[in-house]
Design a binder for these strands. Structure first.
Length: 825
RNA sequence: GCCGUGGUGGCGGAAUUGGUAGACGCGCGAGACUUAAAAUCUCGUGAUAGCAAUAUCGUGUGGGUUCGAUUCCCACCCGCGGCACCA
C-alpha cells in the first residue's frame, strides 16, 4: 500500500476496541426508563453455519446498522439486538459425519460469527445476545408449548407425514420442495406417525386481516395470503342416476355449471374405493395411483389418466347425465375430493376430456364441450383446442337465467339459486393446515411432555423447566428419535414422575424457537418469565425487520401466530410483531449466479476486510445497487470504493487551508447533506453514497482553485460518513474536532442542512421544439413562476429562432421549473 | 403450467404524481507526473454518420395514448424467484 493511504486495519481495530471499552452500544434495553422515540431494529435470526459470515449477511446487517447509527445520532432510542438460531439439522448432520458434538460445533460457529460481526462494526447490543440452544432460552420455548397445550392448541394427531429417509425425520408439507426434502433433497416418502401439532388454523382469519395493518411489501403480503389460501366457493351435490347416492363437488366457478359435462373423483374418494370393489378397471387404476408418489403425480400433471366408474351424475341445472370418472389429477385432500368438469372454461378439465374422448370407443361416451362464457372480444365460437379454453371474465351464455350476466354477478345468482333449490351450500375453504412441530432429531428443544405407563401424555410440570436436552445421546440415525438412547433422560423422567413413565423423545421444529425470539430480546436474562410485559409493550412491535425473501411465508406466519396467541393469553398488548418489514436482495457471485461452494464463486468477507477494511466492504455492498435487488459482485468495483474512502481521508485530514466558507462548496455540502438525510430512512443507500462521491469530486475541484472546507464543515462530512463507514468516520471526527478518544462521532448529533443553501440556485429549463431539446434556459429560481416571461425568452433565444423560421407555433407548453415545449408546424 | 418479480451503455446502476435518458462508480482510451512502473491527477467515453458544428437512432419486442413515454395502456419475448394440477 502506498504511503499516503491510511492504514485501515489500524484505524478499524483502534475504534472497534474504543467502542467496546466505552460500552458504546450496550445496555439499550432501558428497563424502567422512558423512551424518547423507540426504534427496534431487527435482523433475521441467523443460523450460525460452520462456514461463517457470508457477504449476504454483511449486506443486510450493514443496512440495518446504518439505520441504527443514523437514528441514534438523531436522538432516538435504538434497540438493535443479536442472537442465534442455534438448533438445527446441519450441526447434527455434521456430528453424524464427524462425531463432533453439535454443542461444540455450534459454540465454535457462534464465536466465529461474533468475531466477524464485531470486526464489521455492526453496532449490536451484545448485552442481550441470545441463543436458542441455551436452556435459559428454551425453557421459555417449552413454556409456550405448555401454554398452547393448556389451551388445547397443541395436540397429537395420527396421520401420514412426510418422511425424509436421509434426514431420518418428519417434514412439514411446507418443508417439502417438489417432493424432495428441503434440506437434503432426498425423495420424501409417506409414513404414519403420531405427531404434535400447533393449531395455527385457529387464527387463520386474523392472519389475513392483520396484513392490512402492517407496512410490508405488497408481494410479501400476497404470498402470505396465498399460503393461507382463503377461498369462497360452493359445494354442489349431484344425484347419481339410478341410485340413492350422490356426489358432492366443491367449485369456485359455479357460474359455469351449465357447461358442466362430467365429474371426476380423486382416487382417495370413498365412492371411488367403493366402486373399485366390483369394477376391475377402477380397482387397477386406484392401485396404480396409490403407488405414485406425490412427485410423480405432480410431474405427470399434464398427462391425464383415469378410469370410468360406469356411474352417471345428473346436473340439476340442465338434466344432463354426467359420466363419473376417477383420476389422480384431482386431489383427495382438497375440497371434497370430487370435481365437476367444465371443459370449455378450465384447461385441466379440457385436457381430461381430450384424454377421455381418445379413450372411449362409442360416440355416446364422448364428453361434450359446451361454451357458456362469451369472451370480452365477443368470441362465442366452439372450444376445440386447449389454447381456446376461456378462463377469464366475460358474459354468460347458453345458461338459461344467467345469460347476459357478468361472471361475478352470475356467481352470486347461481349460488343463491343452488342454495334455494337445496343442492348447493356455500363454503369457505383454507389452504392453511395446522403446524406439525414434532421432529425425530437430537439437536432441538425437547417437547416438554411425559407419558404415564398407560401411554397417556402429560405436560412436564412448570417447575421442571427447562426440560433439559440430555447429553448422553447417540445421534446417529436409526430411524428412531435419538433421545431414546439417553439413559439419563429416562431415569430423570422416572425419578420425577414415577416408575414406568417415559419422556417424549421428539424435539421441536426449529421454527418454534425462532417464532418468538424478538420477544425475548427486550428482557433476555429474565428467569421468571419469557419477558416482562412492561418491556414487551414498551419496545414492540419491531419498527424495522430485515429478512430475506426465503422467510416470507413460514417464519412470518408462525411468528404472527405466536404473537396473537400470547396476546390472547394476556402477555402482549399488540397484534402484529413486525410493523415495517423490508427485504434485502441476494448478493450473487461475480458470474451473476447464486454463490455456492460447488460453483466456486463465493466471496469471503474476511478476505475483503483484510485487504480493504470493513468500511470498504460496507460501503461497497451498499453502493452495489438497491438493497432489495439481486446484485452480482464486482471484484474491481470494490477497489473503486476503497480509493474513494482513501480520498475522503485525504481531503478531511489534510490541513485546513481556509477559515472562510467557499459559498459554492458550501452549497454542494448542504445539497449532499439533504440528500443523505433523506435517503437513509428510505434505505436508498446507493444513491446516498453516490451523492457523497459527488461531494468529494466537488471538494477536490474546489481545492484546486484554492478553496477548502472549514473545520466545522469537515466535521459535517465526518458525521455523514458515520453510518456508512463508522471506523473512518470516527477517526476523521477526532482529527477534525480534536475531542478526547472517549467521545465518538456516533454519539454526536446528526447535522442539519440549511434548506436555503441546499436549494438549487438557478434552474436549467430545456426548451423543446416538437419534443426535441433544442436549447436550454437558465432561470433564477425565484422567476420560475413567470410563465409569459419565460416563454418569451424561449421564443427569442437564438438557437430556437432558427427552428421557428417560416413556421407557426401551434401550442406552447410550460411545466414550471421542468420544461418548455413549443409545437410548431 | 400457475403466481410473483425484473429487462436501461462494455459492466453495476441513476432518473418514474409522464418532462433534458444514462447521475455515481467500474472498465476502457488519451494525456500529466515518473528513468520506469505503481499511486495520483486531467480530459474523453450510448450507437451510427461526419474533421467539425451537427444529425439520426436509442431504456427487451410490436402496437397505442400524449405536445412529450424508461414511466401509462394492450399484446408478445426473455431472465430470476416461488409453487400446491387447489378446481
Amino acid at each position: 500500500m502506498p504511503k499516503e493511504y491510511y492504514d485501515h486495519t489500524a484505524v478499524e481495530t483502534k475504534w472497534q476496541h474504543a467502542w467496546e471499552e466505552a460500552r458504546l452500544f450496550l445496555g439499550t434495553q432501558k428497563k424502567g426508563q422512558d423512551l424518547v422515540q423507540k426504534q427496534y431494529l431487527l435482523f433475521a435470526f441467523a443460523y450460525p453455519s460452520g462456514s461463517g459470515l457470508h457477504v449476504g449477511h454483511v449486506e443486510s446487517k450493514t443496512a440495518l446498522d446504518i439505520v441504527a447509527r443514523y437514528d441514534r445520532m438523531n436522538g432516538k432510542d435504538v434497540f438493535f439486538p443479536v442472537g442465534w438460531d442455534a438448533f438445527g439439522l446441519p450441526a447434527e448432520n455434521y456430528a453424524i459425519k464427524t462425531g463432533v458434538h453439535p454443542a461444540e460445533t455450534t459454540k465454535n460457529a457462534i464465536n466465529t460469527f461474533r468475531r466477524q460481526i464485531k470486526r464489521l462494526g455492526i453496532s449490536y447490543d451484545w448485552d442481550n445476545e441470545i441463543a436458542t440452544n441455551n436452556p435459559g432460552y428454551y425453557k421459555w420455548t417449552q413454556w409456550i408449548f405448555l401454554q398452547l397445550y393448556n389451551k388445547g392448541l397443541a395436540y397429537q394427531k395420527d396421520g401420514k407425514v412426510n418422511w425424509c429417509p436421509s434426514c431420518q425425520t418428519v417434514l412439514a408439507n411446507e418443508q417439502v420442495v417438489e417432493g424432495l426434502c428441503e434440506r437434503c433433497d432426498s425423495e420424501v416418502i409417506q409414513k404414519d406417525m403420531k405427531q404434535w401439532y400447533f393449531q395455527i388454523t385457529k387464527y387463520k382469519d386474523e392472519l389475513i386481516s392483520g396484513l392490512d395493518t402492517v407496512d410490508w411489501p405488497e408481494p410479501t403480503k400476497a404470498q402470505q395470503l396465498n399460503w393461507i389460501g382463503k377461498k369462497t366457493g360452493i359445494e354442489v351435490t349431484y344425484p347419481i342416476k339410478g341410485s340413492d347416492k350422490s356426489i358432492t363437488c366443491f367449485t369456485t366457478r359455479p357460474d359455469t355449471n351449465f357447461g358442466a359435462t362430467f365429474v371426476v373423483l380423486a382416487p382417495e374418494h370413498s365412492l371411488a374405493i367403493e366402486v373399485a370393489q366390483e369394477n376391475a378397471t377402477v380397482a387397477a387404476y386406484l392401485e396404480a395411483a396409490e403407488k405414485k408418489t406425490e412427485l410423480e403425480r405432480q410431474q405427470e400433471g399434464k398427462k391425464k389418466s383415469g378410469a370410468f366408474t360406469g356411474l352417471y351424475a345428473v346436473n340439476p341445472l340442465t338434466g344432463r347425465d354426467m359420466p363419473v370418472w376417477v383420476s389422480d389429477f384431482v386431489l383427495g385432500s382438497f375440497g371434497t375430493g370430487a370435481v365437476v368438469g367444465v371443459p370449455a372454461h378450465d384447461v385441466r378439465d379440457f385436457q381430461f376430456v381430450k384424454f377421455v374422448n381418445l379413450q372411449v370407443t362409442s360416440s355416446a361416451e364422448k364428453i361434450e364441450v359446451i361454451r357458456v362464457i362469451e369472451a370480452t372480444d365477443g368470441d362465442r365460437s366452439d372450444i376445440t383446442a386447449t389454447e381456446h379454453v376461456y378462463e377469464d371474465d366475460g358474459v354468460i351464455m347458453n345458461s338459461d337465467f344467467l345469460d347476459g350476466l357478468s361472471v361475478s354477478k352470475a356467481q352470486e345468482k347461481i349460488m343463491d339459486h343452488m342454495e334455494a333449490e337445496g343442492f348447493g351450500k356455500r363454503v369457505t375453504t383454507y389452504r392453511l393446515r395446522d403446524w406439525l412441530i414434532s421432529r425425530q432429531r437430537y439437536w432441538g428443544t425437547p417437547i416438554p411432555v411425559v407419558y404415564d405407563p398407560e401411554g397417556n401424555p402429560h405436560p412436564v410440570k412448570e417447575e421442571h423447566l427447562p426440560w433439559q436436552l440430555p447429553t448422553d445421546v447417540d445421534f446417529n440415525p436409526t430411524g428412531e428419535s435419538p433421545l431414546k438412547s439417553s439413559k439419563e433422560f429416562i431415569a430423570r423422567t422416572e425419578k420425577l414422575y414415577g416408575k414406568g413413565w417415559r419422556p417424549e423423545f421428539d424435539t421441536m421444529d426449529t421454527f418454534v424457537d425462532s417464532s418468538w425470539y424478538y420477544l425475548r430480546y427486550v428482557d433476555s436474562r429474565n428467569t421468571e418469565s419469557l419477558a416482562i410485559s412492561e418491556q414487551l409493550n414498551k419496545w414492540l412491535p419491531v419498527d424495522l425487520y430485515m429478512i430475506g425473501p426465503e422467510h416470507i411465508v413460514l417464519h412470518l406466519l408462525y411468528s404472527r401466530f405466536f404473537t396473537k396467541f400470547l396476546r390472547d393469553e394476556g402477555h402482549l398488548a399488540f397484534d402484529e410483531p413486525f410493523g415495517k418489514m423490508r427485504h434485502q436482495g441476494m448478493i450473487l457471485g461475480p458470474d451473476g449466479k447464486k454463490m455456492s461452494k460447488s460453483k466456486g464463486n463465493v466471496i469471503n468477507p474476511d478476505e475483503i476486510i483484510e485487504k480493504f477494511g470493513a468500511d470498504t466492504l460496507r460501503v461497497y455492498e451498499m453502493f452495489m445497487g438497491p438493497l432489495e435487488a439481486d446484485k452480482p459482485w464486482d471484484v474491481r468495483a470494490v477497489i473503486g470504493v476503497y480509493k474513494f474512502l482513501q480520498r475522503i481521508n485525504r481531503l478531511v485530514s489534510s490541513p485546513t487551508t481556509t477559515k472562510d466558507e467557499d459559498i459554492s462548496l458550501t452549497q454542494v455540502l448542504h445539497q449532499t447533506l439533504k440528500k443523505v438525510t433523506e435517503d437513509i430512512p428510505k434505505l436508498k443507500f446507493n444513491t446516498a453514497i453516490a451523492e457523497l462521491m459527488k461531494l468529494s469530486n466537488a471538494w477536490e475541484a474546489a481545492q484546486k482553485s484554492g478553496a477548502d472546507m472549514t473545520v466545522s464543515q469537515k466535521e459535517i462530512v465526518a458525521k455523514m460518513f458515520a453510518p456508512f463507514a463508522p471506523f473512518l468516520a470516527d477517526e476523521l471526527y477526532h482529527q477534525v474536532t480534536g475531542v478526547a478518544d472517549t467521545d465518538f462521532v456516533h454519539t454526536s448529533s446528526w447535522p442539519v442542512f440549511d434548506p436555503e443553501l441546499a436549494k438549487a440556485q438557478a434552474v436549467i429549463i430545456p426548451v423543446q421544439i416538437n419534443g426535441k431539446v433544442r436549447a436550454q434556459l437558465e432561470v433564477a429560481s425565484e422567476d420560475i413562476a413567470d410563465e409569459d416571461g419565460i416563454l418569451e425568452r424561449a421564443r427569442t433565444t437564438e438557437e430556437i429562432q432558427k427552428y421557428l423560421q417560416g413556421k407557426e407555433i401551434k401550442k406552447e407548453i410550460y411545466v414550471p421549473g421542468k420544461i418548455i415545449n413549443l409545437v410548431v408546424v
